[in-house]
């Protein structure tokens, strides 16, 4: 077990409206630790010194719940591709490294404390139209509509989004296009998703804009940062859907949008 000495620069902020600043901590980590376990150890040390531990979101620690949200050395979830912060292991760092840890930065993701931000904007985008209206009990047999393996695989690729917000964090425009597009593609690829396809994209984009996310200038940083490797192709697809929906909209879509 090789251990390493690290200098951490961590964003500390007492509350939503309190001023914040980077604080420096020195710690030693084991290469087999996960990044969050390294922070656990730092927090135990802080506790020992009577200081308040660093607040950060986490839950599953398996890269699936999307809770963890750390800007590590300027990259969301850190340097390793297709890996969430909780799945990142310290072997990705070396002795003597300085590691800067900051919260996601976006006006739509206000900081609540230290590294914890409010991502409920994502929920509101889904609530606006990110669903298929299938009331419980109304369903026909699961095999009634065959779906080509390719379509269901592509839908699954998009459906893997864990709603972590790394795409927004990485995007120089703080744009939520990748997150929104992933949902539009997931549902739009499936036969079940067709009836609401137009109103869905209209309502979701409307909400996305209303939340104050930035606009996409096709940097592609989001795809690079996405732990689930959601492709920017979904963004192109969403743009196409939106144009089509807007230009062919008979009025109902917009009227009904949001109400689902």
């Amino acid at each position: 077990m090789s251990s390493m000495k690290l200098t951490l620069k961590v964003w500390r902020q007492a509350g939503p409206n309190a001023p914040g600043a980077l604080h420096t901590y020195v710690t030693t980590a084991d290469e087999h630790m996960s990044f969050l376990e390294m922070l656990d150890v730092v927090n135990e040390e802080l506790l020992g010194r009577g200081e308040e531990p660093i607040a950060f979101d986490h839950d599953c620690r398996e890269g699936i719940c999307g809770s963890c949200a750390l800007m590590i050395n300027g990259s969301p979830h850190g340097p390793r591709k297709a890996t969430t912060a909780c799945q990142l292991h310290m072997r990705s760092f070396k002795d003597g490294d300085t590691v800067t840890i900051e919260p996601w930065r976006a006006s739509a993701f206000p900081v609540l404390r230290d590294l914890v931000v409010d991502r409920t904007a994502f929920d509101r985008i889904i609530a606006a139209g990110g669903f298929i209206s299938a009331p419980t009990g109304a369903a026909q047999d699961g095999n009634a509509i065959p779906i080509s393996k390719e379509d269901s695989d592509l839908a699954m690729d998009a459906a893997q989004c864990i709603g972590c917000g790394a795409c927004v964090a990485a995007c120089p425009n703080a744009s939520a296009m990748l997150f929104t597009a992933a949902k539009v593609s997931h549902l739009g690829r499936l036969p079940q998703g067709q009836p609401e396809r137009d109103r869905r994209v209209l309502a979701m984009v409307q909400q996305m804009d209303a939340e104050g996310f930035g606009n996409c200038t096709n940097y592609g940083e989001c795809q690079e940062a996405c732990p689930k490797e959601i492709s920017v192709e979904n963004i192109a697809r969403m743009n196409r859907d939106l144009v089509r929906a807007t230009l062919t909209d008979r009025g109902e879509a917009h009227a009904g949008a949001g109400a689902g």
Partner: peptide, 20 residues
């Protein structure tokens, strides 16, 4: 019924090439 319900919601269950 659960499987039917989830398919209707757009849960992308694994499928065979035949689409089932």
């Amino acid at each position: 019924n659960i499987i039917d319900q989830c398919v209707a919601q757009g849960v992308p269950f694994a499928r065979e090439y035949g689409g089932l």
